[in-house]
Design a protein around this nucleic acid. Structure first.
Lengths: 156, 156
DNA sequence: CTATTCCGTCAACCACGTTGACTATCGTAC
DNA sequence: GTACGATAGTCAACGTGGTTGACGGAATAG
């Protein structure tokens, strides 16, 4: 089991390791650029909030977690200064969750650093190999694995 | 940022999605085969315990977490019947952590299901593409991302 | 006007991780 | 032989990221 002739764990382990490598590198660089408190999960949350803002319930749906979990995550990001809550004038039940300037800065830097990291992969593997990995993964990943498909944010 | 012409988040997101796809499929199948309580993290722990058994401190080192965290994880897996603790006759401080027959069964089935899933990827993408993904990832992942390299268990 | 649905929140709980402190034991140096 | 430092396991407190259930207030469908 999981010996060289029976491939076993290699593929999933490598996918996870590849992801972790990218994310570890990202956060090391983000810490250097003034965002040491940004954790891996926060990036997805900021992406899901988006430039237009959203509500906690909607955020939960986009991230595939309960509205309560989304609310607690927003609490933490508000405490860290990345998000703010404002009352919705049109609906007194709702509280809009919006990015602060610090949030926008973190997201901008994340995207820039990810681009650099992808460039590093391209330099080592070649553009066609990186594109092939992305193509192949796209073919194997069912659409609903990421309920988080904010249009225009993931290049897909 | 992260628009189609600036690749941004696509690669890391796809790596994570690929991993999640495989792991979700694995656990759906494991649940069907009598292991509904096995969670993603447990597979790594059982791998790290290995056929020979180990101690909580050593386990923590292999998994890259504190000995306390490893101990708590062992507690849960003991409660679920996958691991057992036995006193080390040679050293009264130590408590050997060993797999039960249920643990061995879960690990065997995990490896078998992963093999099947890899076959499914091979059927869709072709053997050379899957091998290319694994090759490329191996080249990009630093050796220390997985402190968990039990010889003979990961085919690498 | 009323019934229902929706939004945010509170509370309790679980999984998984951290640090710090503590006991018991082992190995060694004296 | 004993004293001492290193090691193994555990306990407590805490943080983060999730869950479910319950609840009050606001919007909306009838």
């Amino acid at each position: 089991m999981a010996t060289p002739d029976r491939p076993g764990f290699a593929l999933p382990l490598l996918l996870l390791a590849g992801f972790r490598t990218l994310v570890d590198d990202l956060h090391a660089e983000l810490a250097r650029q003034g965002h040491p408190e940004l954790r891996p999960a926060h990036g997805f949350v900021l992406q899901a909030v988006g430039p237009a803002g959203t509500t906690a319930s909607d955020l939960g749906q986009r991230l595939g977690v309960s509205k309560q979990a989304a609310g607690k995550t927003v609490d933490r990001l508000v405490a860290l200064g990345y998000l703010e809550r404002v009352d919705d004038p049109a609906d007194a039940r709702r509280k809009l969750v919006r990015m602060t300037e610090k949030g926008r800065d973190g997201l901008r830097r994340s995207a820039a650093v990810f681009d650099q990291l992808r460039d590093r992969w391209t330099a080592t593997l070649g553009a066609d190999r990186v594109a092939a990995i992305e193509d192949d993964l796209r073919r194997m990943v069912p659409a609903d694995v990421f309920r988080l498909d904010v249009p225009g944010w993931f290049g897909g």
